[in-house]
């Protein structure tokens, strides 16, 4: 059994999002990085922390298989613990469900339809939603607004997205949020940016409304594992 204390980096708690959720406040966050810099690893760390806090997580993976997504959890958990696999901890595993969609097939309506199948039959009612692989380039402000509305309608504590930025795309919002999220940054409460600095990897907190950590703070990531480092 994994004790909460075993997980050295509890990003939800580090940002104070658990307390925020306790006050009934919802959070929508995004992790932005160039391709291959470890966005999914960060999202999975958030998801695991949610699960360890007893919340039900729905992990929507766009363009990846269920098996691949499961493997992310096992790999991250194995690095955080002593090689534990989620399958061996049923009480935590029960807090996760994975849904995969094709890139072209994911819409808020479809997600709602699938989620209704679960909620109405009282099979699974998620409290945290992870959306990995959302296509920000081809979805507009309204779509994002709808997803923010979705969070309220379904009583979710938080939604976390990942977004891919490109080196050559220099667009940024007034708050310094890079493309492709520069035009929707006001819809997010938290914006994190993974930035390589020489041999180091940094997780910059660009925006964090009602958080325990101030914007402008930079956390260190272990470049080998992409785990958020303690301290």
């Amino acid at each position: 059994m994994v004790e909460n204390t075993v997980v050295v980096n509890n990003p939800i708690r580090a940002l104070g999002l658990d307390k925020k959720a306790g006050q009934g406040l919802q959070s929508m966050g995004v992790v932005i990085a160039r391709a291959g810099l470890g966005k999914t690893a960060i999202l999975v760390q958030f998801a695991l922390d949610c699960m360890l806090l007893g919340n039900k997580v729905l992990h929507v993976s766009i363009g990846q298989s269920v098996d691949k997504t499961r493997k992310w959890y096992d790999d991250i958990l194995a690095m955080l613990t002593d090689g534990e696999k989620l399958e061996t901890i049923p009480e935590i595993l029960r807090n996760r469900m994975i849904m995969t969609f094709k890139e072209s097939a994911f819409t808020k309506a479809k997600l709602e339809e699938r989620l209704d199948d679960l909620v109405k039959q009282d099979i699974y009612k998620p409290e945290c939603l992870i959306i990995d692989g959302y296509d920000f380039e081809h979805n507009d402000y309204t779509s994002m607004e709808e997803l923010r509305g979705f969070m309220s309608e379904h009583g979710l504590k938080m939604i976390w997205f990942s977004a891919v930025t490109h080196r050559e795309d220099k667009r940024v919002s007034a708050n310094g949020v890079p493309a492709p999220c520069h035009e929707v940054d006001d819809l997010f409460d938290i914006v994190l940016f993974i930035k390589p600095e020489g041999e180091q990897m940094k997780l910059d907190i660009l925006k964090c409304d009602d958080c325990a950590v101030h914007p402008g703070t930079s956390l260190s990531l272990d470049p080998a594992t992409m785990l958020i480092q303690k301290g």
């Binding site: 049923p90 994975i98 849904m99 995969t100 199948d117 039959q121 099979i123």
Partner: peptide, 23 residues
């Protein structure tokens, strides 16, 4: 039929690991 399928699994003490949408 996804809803009915998931319901039938749930009734059988099953734990749904995930769903995969394919067209």
């Amino acid at each position: 039929f996804q809803g009915s399928v998931m319901g039938s699994i749930n009734q059988r003490r099953g734990m749904i690991i995930g769903t995969m949408e394919e067209g």
